[in-house]
Write a protein that binds this DNA or RNA. Structure first.
Lengths: 66, 66
DNA sequence: TCATTTTGTAAAATATATTTTACATTTGGT
DNA sequence: ACCAAATGTAAAATATATTTTACAAAATGA
């Protein structure tokens, strides 16, 4: 799972903490997802996409994990 | 999280077990997701959407959970 | 340079997804 | 009615996401 959250945050200039607030998770969760440390739940993926007004498919992509 | 997996399966006439196979999870996982017993991971959501050739956004939707 | 905000990271605890095994119910065809 | 395939479901085990607390490093502005 890759994603362009960092880019969207820049575009909307929003901090990790602000985004975390809006989607009801902790800052660390956003940080970890941005860094691809682990994948979000589908629900969280949708919430984040909604904040930026983009489709989940445009924000995330499946980088062939085995 | 709602989804139209059952419809897509019908359209492609594919069984839960077949779909499970294609996306590398168990039949029970597909069954539970169809029944909205729990939400899939984003990765799984993408894999399922890919099988049907649709966008994640078209297959799943966020039915305002609190 | 100093102070403040933002980001990176980590370990332990908790919540949730997924597997495994197993059985019951429904559905479709004959 | 019978048989087989498909679906529904459940409990315990395991994997993975997310929280909490806490600190270190980097970035930004004055």
């Amino acid at each position: 799972m890759k994603n362009t959250i960092k880019v969207e945050r820049a575009r909307h200039n929003m901090t990790q903490a602000e985004l975390a607030d809006k989607v009801n998770v902790t800052r660390q969760t956003i940080n970890a997802i941005e860094a691809s440390k682990y994948d979000p739940s589908a629900t969280l993926a949708f919430r984040i996409a909604r904040v930026f007004g983009v489709r989940v498919d445009d924000l995330f992509s499946l980088e062939e994990e085995e």
